[in-house]
Structure formats: C-alpha cells, structure tokens
Design a binder for these strands. Structure first.
Length: 727
DNA sequence: GAGTTTGAAACT
DNA sequence: CAGTTTCAAACTC
C-alpha cells in the first residue's frame, strides 16, 4: 500500500470507475455468495481466532454518528445486549494493538483522503478536503472506542456477523485476484495523499485511544490477508469498516461540525434506547454513547459512496437497494446478476423516495454534472430511500422530501412493529419479504440484513406453517390486463380478488381493515366476511358468479368437476375456508404487470407483496391448487391476459392438474412449488404462469434450493422489466 | 398524538 | 380445528 510507484494510479482509478478496486470490490459483494463459503470453516476460524470484540463496542461514538445513530435498529441494542453483552469491560480481552489495526485505520484514513481528493476532482468544492494536516479530528472527536468509552459494554460477535464477514471475505477473495493490483494502486496512491503521514504514526496520533478495539471486530478477515497483501487488501477487504470510517471522516464531512446529531436523529436514538433497551441496555449504554451496529457498518460500505467518485456511486446504490429489497433473494441464492437486475428495475420503476443520505450529506452543494444529475434523480434515491438506514428517514427533512416526491404516503410507509420484532406477518415489511428500512418505526426489529439468519429461519418457519404466508394478498388482474395488453379498461378491480379472502365482520369490507378493500379488489368466495359491502365487488356476487361458472364447467374432467362442485358448495354455504385456488394461477402475470410494469400502481400500493415463486416442494406440489378453478382461470386469462399469455397458459388445465389442494390449516393453499420449472408433466398453465412470479423462492425445502434458485431466477427474469422487454 | 377499533396472525 | 390471544394497522378523536 505504500508503493510510491503506484501513486499515479489514483487519477486513473477515479477516471475509470469501473476498473477501480472499490468498484470491483463492491461488485464482488454479491449478496448471494454461497452460504457454504460464508460458513467456510477456514474463514470462520480465521475470524474467530482474532479474539474479536464486538463492533458495537468498537464504534461507539456519542458524536460522530449523527447520520447513523438513528439508523441503529433497536434490535442492534437488544440483540447484542440480551445475550452477547459481555460484562467484562476491561481491556483484558481486547486484542493488543496490532499493526493490522493500525494499518487498517491508516488505510482508512488514507482512503478517506484519497476519496476526498477524488471526489473533489470530480466535482470541485462539493466535498471540502478534510481539515487539518491529517484531515482527521483530534482524538477527542473520536470518542468512540476511546478509553473514555470503555464503559461501553463490549458485545460478543454475532454469528451472523461473522458469517456475513466471511461471506464478504469470500467475495473479496474471489475478486481480489483480478483487482488486487488495482487496489494496490489505488491505496498506495492514497498513501501518497497523506502528506507523509505514516499509517502507524497517524494511528498513534489520532487514535490516542483503543482504536485497536475499533478495528478488531471488523478487520478480522483483513488481518488474515494482511500477511499476504499488507495494508492494501486489509483496507479493501475491510471495506465495510473502511466505508464506515469513510463516512465518518468524509461522508459526513467535517466531523467536528457534524458529530452532533441532529435533534431528530438524536431523539430517535434516544427513543431507541429508552423504548426498548431501557431494560436491557440503558444502564449499559450511558446516555450519549451510541453503539453502532454491524448493520450500520455494512451500510457504511455503501454510504462511503458519499465521498466516492460518481462512477462508483450508482453501482453501490444498486447494491444498497439490493440489500434492501432482496431479503429473500439473497438467502435463496439469487445470483448477483439477478439482484442487480432488480436494482435496475428499481431504478426504472420504483417510486422516488427520499434521496440518499449519502447524497445529502456527502455532496452538499455539488453542482450536478450530467452524471451527478443521474444520482440526483429519483432513480438514484430509490435505493437509498429504500434501504434500511433509518437515521435520515427520521429526520423531518427527509420525510418531507418523501412527501414532496409525490408518491402517496403508503409507498414509503413501513411498519411500526413493537413486539413482533418484525419477524412475524404482523410486520408489513416482513410479510412483504423486505427488510425493514428507514421509514420503519419499528422497535426491536430483527428484520434487518444483519439478522439475515434469523429472518430467513423465521420466514422458513412461517412458510412451513403457511406456504402462502408471503404470497401477495391481492391479485389485481385489471391493472395487469390493462398494462400488458392494453385491453379492457373496464376490467374492474372486482375482477381481482383477495387470495385468501377477508374475514371482516364490522368493517363491512368498506374500510382498510379489509384486505380486499385495501387492495382495491372485490371480495370473493374465498372471503368469509359478513355484511360485505365491498365497493370493489361484493362477496355474494362473486360467489354467485362463480357458481354459474362452476355449472358451466360441467364438461371438465370428472375429478375436477367434483372438486369444483365441492368448491361451489363450500362457497355457497360460506363456511369454507376456501383456498385461493381461484386466482392463484393468474397471480404471477398480474403481479408482474401491476407491480413491475405499472409504476404508478407500484408506488400507490404498499410495498409490492412478493409473490411466491414456488419451486420444487413436495409439500406444495402435492397440494397444488390444481385445476379446480381452471375455468375461472381460463376465463380470467382470456379476459385480461389472453393475448399476452403463452399458448400454454391458455390451455385449460389438464385433468392431471386437477389436484385438490388444501393448506395445512385449511385456509391457504400453496401453488405448486415446482411451478417454476417448465416440466412437460407440469404443462399446466398454472405452473407456467407461476413461472412469471416475481417473487421469492420458497424457503421450504433446502434440498431443492438449486432448482429453486434457477427457477426463481427464471421467474425473476421474467418479472424484471429487463426481462419483460422486447428482447 | 393518544386511544380505540379492527381483523389478521399466532397461539393454545 | 375452533377458540382465544396477540399484534399492528386503521381509524377516531
């Protein structure tokens, strides 16, 4: 990292963002790194061998985290405090101040400065160069981790954190082969920018405190690399912490001036402490001190973009949005490519939420260049507005910004869970398959990327209990039909249905308590509502209509006919928790169109409910909704999507598909999990339609994850605007 | 903003 | 599987 002859690489790196080490690194941070690698024993061992203290204890700063402290999920406190707080606050467990740590910080510092420089070169005056010869605040400004803050409880290292680290490490390993030299160039150049400040020296001067503590947790993997690549890879592989520090040092601009959180964020932070952690952490975290979650550190990798040349920014924003949105994709092993497509999708489709915090705080006064314009438009803000940073969102400014963006409030509205930890379907975010994000006001949230394992396992459990738990609640066919085919605008919302059906009693399906009404669809026979007055379509009408259809469908295969008849009877007696057989088959195309092809609809609705892309699952396949409602399906398809549907989709369900299905609880039925695979034996239109579901791969059945992933990927591609394009 | 209502989700 | 409880959103004031 201190090779002088590489100094010249910095400008070129700035100019050629795509070739830059950081870019490569970020690019390598695939969220779907194979879990195996993430858990590789070697990685974990290397990490564990470091006797790492927690990140929370590392980045505890009462001042320098105005931007981020409010981002802290309360879970960060709760999680760490409950089981992982180590009472021993002494230094005895701290790793000795290692050269690695020194290098890391030095690297960070240099990177910071270099970034400043690069950024400045991109847009002069946008980000003032760091102040002071070393451009670093005095030790006092780095209260976090300072001896003064040794009272901060040192937390254990979360296993998921380790895994995440290891995963990133793997990613880095994969990427470093091609980019290590470039990184070296970049970072060596950065060293040159330090005006002769030696890393160790810098560390000694600036830290004046236990920065080794700060380093230890996040630099575990880096240290492992340090042997081979010295500080270069150390810094790069520890981009998270580097990013964190970057944001501290540069992203937030002048630390001394910005260390004091805005009142809003501070308030938020304190609310976090008081509301949830007062019983757990309040006494452990003195007022004014702040722990920085690992999640936050992850975020900082992206937030570091604030001081990163524009060329990097878009890419990392995509990554950011990716993380925000692809909760399940990650777990299911979606390819990074797919995820990126999703990101692109977001860019083109998603609502314009608040601009990125990065942009806000890192590019003050920037004169937008054509490119930096790109960052400023809504597409760029989507991701950051969608990410799980909460600090910015909680500022009135940001909220106002969101409101100004014109989208209805619901688009930005998120959960407010208090007790569910956002790990139950009560949580809209969790139910939607997304991580909680800044708009959320949840408490004790575990629905965060950092709690990925918990989230996924919980999802699994819920899915196991109810395979359709995460399926879209409402099938809006009218929008889809209009969007895709441009036909029949008279396709009323009533033609769509709430899949599971509501159970309203007092709301008469006239209020948003009613999911059908909320979804803008009429009630159906699936509903068990009383006194239905759904303006989008009453349940009684739906039932009678379906009854007629049933009768007309007498020529259907015998088994299917029987099923239908039974279904009709059930509907008529209004006592059956009829699975959403009726419309499940059409869900995918409609969802695709409504959520992906029709931005207005997208934005006006709640976070798009992820449709389940069912992959192989004996459970579901054996209980496939079948063709009980094949005629309905056909009718619907003809009315709305016939032109757009593949021939196979227009095919009436074959008798073979007439499988009566039932959910475990009798209320919900899962579409075939293998619907995504285009198997000849699964030629039923339903399954092929499901292929289009832009949804999560089933978490059920890991054994089929491979096929699941593939099929999900296929589904996703189909769902993606990119895939939907003429190409 | 606090309190109430509501119905889905979770639990037993 | 039905009844109950829990939960958070929707709603009202």
């Amino acid at each position: 990292m201190d090779t002088p002859d590489r100094a010249a690489a910095a400008p070129s790196a700035a100019a050629r963002a795509e070739d830059s080490p950081l870019f490569s690194f970020i690019d390598s941070l695939s969220p779907i790194e194979p879990l195996k690698s993430a858990y590789s024993a070697s990685s974990i061992q290397a990490y564990q061998s470091l006797n790492i203290t927690s990140i929370s204890s590392i980045f505890t700063s009462p001042h320098d985290n105005a931007q981020k402290e409010s981002k802290l999920s309360k879970s960060s406190f709760a999680e760490f405090s409950e089981s992982e707080v180590c009472a021993d606050e002494s230094d005895k467990n701290k790793p000795s101040k290692s050269s690695n740590a020194v290098r890391l910080f030095a690297c960070t510092s240099t990177l910071t400065q270099a970034t400043h420089k690069i950024t400045s070169s991109v847009s002069e005056g946008t980000v003032g160069p760091p102040e002071g010869s070393n451009n670093l605040p005095p030790p006092g400004q780095f209260d976090s981790g300072s001896p003064d803050h040794n009272t901060t409880p040192c937390h254990g290292v979360r296993s998921d954190l380790k895994q995440g680290k290891c995963r990133k490490l793997q990613a880095f390993q994969a990427a470093k082969t091609n980019t290590s030299e470039k990184r070296k160039c970049l970072f060596s150049t950065e060293v040159q920018l330090m005006d002769g400040c030696q890393p160790e020296k810098l560390n000694d001067e600036i830290l004046g405190c236990d920065w080794d503590d700060l380093i230890s947790a996040t630099s575990g993997e880096l240290i492992a690399y340090d042997e081979d690549h010295k500080g270069v890879q150390l810094a790069v592989s520890n981009a998270e912490s580097c990013g964190f520090l970057l944001s501290k040092l540069t992203g937030d601009g002048d630390i001394s001036d910005r260390t004091h959180p805005s009142s809003s964020t501070q308030t938020y932070y304190r609310e976090l402490l008081m509301d949830e952690d007062q019983t757990e952490n309040a006494q452990l975290v003195p007022d004014g001190e702040k722990n920085i979650s690992t999640e936050e550190i992850q975020d900082n990798l992206y937030e570091a973009n604030g001081s990163i040349p524009t060329g990097y920014k878009v890419e990392t924003q995509q990554q950011r949005g990716m993380r925000r949105r692809c909760l399940v994709f990650e777990a299911a092993g979606y390819s990074n490519r797919i995820v990126q497509k999703e990101s692109v999708m977001d860019l083109s489709v998603s609502t314009c939420k608040g601009k990125s915090p990065v942009q806000n705080h890192s590019n003050p006064g920037k004169t937008p260049s054509p490119q930096l314009q790109m960052d400023d438009d809504c597409s760029a803000g989507v991701f950051l507005g969608n990410d799980h940073d909460s600090s910015q969102s909680n500022s009135p400014q940001k909220k106002r910004r969101k409101a100004d963006n014109g989208d209805d409030g619901e688009a930005c509205k998120r959960c407010s869970c208090k007790k569910s930890k956002c790990l139950k379907l009560y949580c809209e975010c969790f139910a939607a398959g997304v991580y909680c994000s800044e708009p959320c006001s949840c408490q004790g949230c575990l629905n965060k990327p950092i709690h990925e394992e918990i989230v996924l396992s919980t999802r699994k459990q819920i899915e196991f209990r109810n395979p359709l738990a995460f399926a879209p609640k409402v099938i809006r066919m009218s929008d889809a039909g209009q969007d895709i085919t441009g036909e029949d605008p008279n396709n009323t919302p009533a033609s769509a249905r709430h899949k599971r059906g509501c159970n309203c009693k007092k709301s008469s399906c006239l209020k948003k308590y009613c999911e059908c009404y909320q979804g803008g669809v009429g009630c159906s026979s699936n509903c068990r509502c009383e006194g239905c007055k759904n303006t989008f379509g009453k349940r009684d009408a739906a039932v009678s209509t379906e009854a007629e259809e049933m009768k007309q469908g007498g020529e259907e295969a015998e088994n299917c006919g029987k099923e239908k008849e039974n279904d009709l009877q059930k509907a008529n007696v209004q006592s059956e928790d009829q699975p959403f057989l009726e419309l499940v088959p059409i869900t995918p195309p409609f969802d695709v169109s409504s959520s992906l092809l029709k931005p207005p609809n997208f934005s006006s609705a709640k976070p798009p409910r992820p449709t389940k892309a069912r992959s192989n699952s004996s459970r579901s396949s054996s209980k496939a909704p079948g063709a009980v409602h094949s005629q309905k399906f056909t009718k619907i398809a003809n009315s709305g999507l016939n032109e757009e549907m593949p021939d196979i989709l227009r095919d009436d369900a074959s008798p073979g598909n007439c499988v009566k299905t039932s959910s475990p609880n009798g209320k919900r039925v899962s579409p075939p999990h293998n619907a995504l695979s285009v198997s000849p034996s699964q030629k039923g239109g339903r399954k092929l339609i499901l292929k289009s579901i832009p949804s999560f791969p089933s978490l059920i059945g890991d054994a089929s994850s491979g096929s699941s992933m593939n099929s999900s990927e296929s589904a996703f591609n189909t769902a993606s605007p990119l895939a939907l394009g003429p190409s």
